[in-house]
Design a protein around this nucleic acid. Sequence first.
DNA 1: GTTGGCACTATATGAGCGTATAGTGGGCAA
DNA 2: TTGCCCACTATACGCTCATATAGTGCCAAC
Lengths: 228, 228
Amino acid sequence: MVGGPIGDAAFEDLTARARIRDAAIRLFAERGIDGTTVRDIAQEAGVSPGLLRHHFGSKEALREVCDAYALDRLVKIKEDLLFEGKVANPGFLPSVHPTIVLLYKYLTRALLDGSSGAAAMFDDMVTLSEQWVSKHAPAVTEDYRAYAAVLVGMQSGLLAMHDHVSRALGVDIFTTEGHLRMAGALADFYSHSLLDPEFVTKARAAMEPLRAPNPPSATGTDPGAEGA
Amino acid sequence: MVGGPIGDAAFEDLTARARIRDAAIRLFAERGIDGTTVRDIAQEAGVSPGLLRHHFGSKEALREVCDAYALDRLVKIKEDLLFEGKVANPGFLPSVHPTIVLLYKYLTRALLDGSSGAAAMFDDMVTLSEQWVSKHAPAVTEDYRAYAAVLVGMQSGLLAMHDHVSRALGVDIFTTEGHLRMAGALADFYSHSLLDPEFVTKARAAMEPLRAPNPPSATGTDPGAEGA
DNA sequence: GTTGGCACTATATGAGCGTATAGTGGGCAA
DNA sequence: TTGCCCACTATACGCTCATATAGTGCCAAC
């Protein structure tokens, strides 16, 4: 059993504690930690602010519970999908999809706001990617660790830029249509080389002098600069 | 003339207005908008909170001035580098590097905190990338807009994940050493195909059914999932 | 030398925050 | 019936924030 979507149904069937936790995850995901007040959470959960304190002690403690719960929940869903063979079950994926979207939004926020649990997840993902790349695509780089860190950083960063990417695309990337469009572009990205290897070799050589002990770094290949 | 680094020298030579603006850019970049108080800014600039109000009217107005200034400053520096031929001038790049790093940090924050100026910059970068890709690498995708949006989203998102990437790498990516390491991985990323095109074609086909009108999107290729 | 204006400071105000605590009501054991 | 526990509410405290306003001193114009 994976449990219902965090967002909606069976609202009054949940214990107040669970309602508070779910409301917190929703609001934290949408507005960030500092952008959410305990009063907001209490109102969203339909309880008094005092009850939140009664159950969780403090906002920070509630947040840690949310971190752990979101991480755990996402792992469980993925296990169900991969090991319980529920991918084959049509209707399972659509049923958990809203929850997955919410959890990704929450964890992305947690990454930006600085949560130790999310940071550990990030590190795990880097290590897993590192192993995957060195095993399945060993020729792409000589520095697996840096490659993996950049890969995971760009993936999670892309989600962090959700609003801007959606705006540029004209469609929310968390809708089916938007997600497919983004996934298609990502697939292109991973399966084609954007830059001429020769050009890259030259650029690398041009940067080489900076590796000398003293002077600060270059900006010519600075990420976030112009398109390429 | 590009002006001195925002961060440090000639502190007391600047007008109070400029000191306040520079202090705000520094603190906003480091702690975010909401994480910075007008008292912090005033103290950092060595003036009273009242003077900040006198010159800028409100925190939000100050922020807009900072947005415009940071954008303008970065454009000017890039123009100097590209069109004034100052790239050739050794010593120019190292002299402006700290400022560039600061401006990137600031604009990344502005993107995350939601500034209209930064959003416009993002859109411009997407459009520029779109044009560049369709002209110089037309074979990589059929959907230039989505490709460009993802490209820019990942680049800026990577900077947004600065702390986590640096931690995973064991070195701050805004130092020379860290930057070179990250740039190297990025170069690998852009010049080699990570995934087998055949595998991608299959994955794309597997996702195709979702394009049907109704059901929500899939998660099998969800970005931010495991390494690949 | 006086006046006017402006950069600047000190201090006040009111809202909103997290947190604290006293109180209430209903169900359950004895 | 009595007593007690516990989920839950109402209210208040202390703090910090952005913002507002009254006041000060310098400097240039006349």
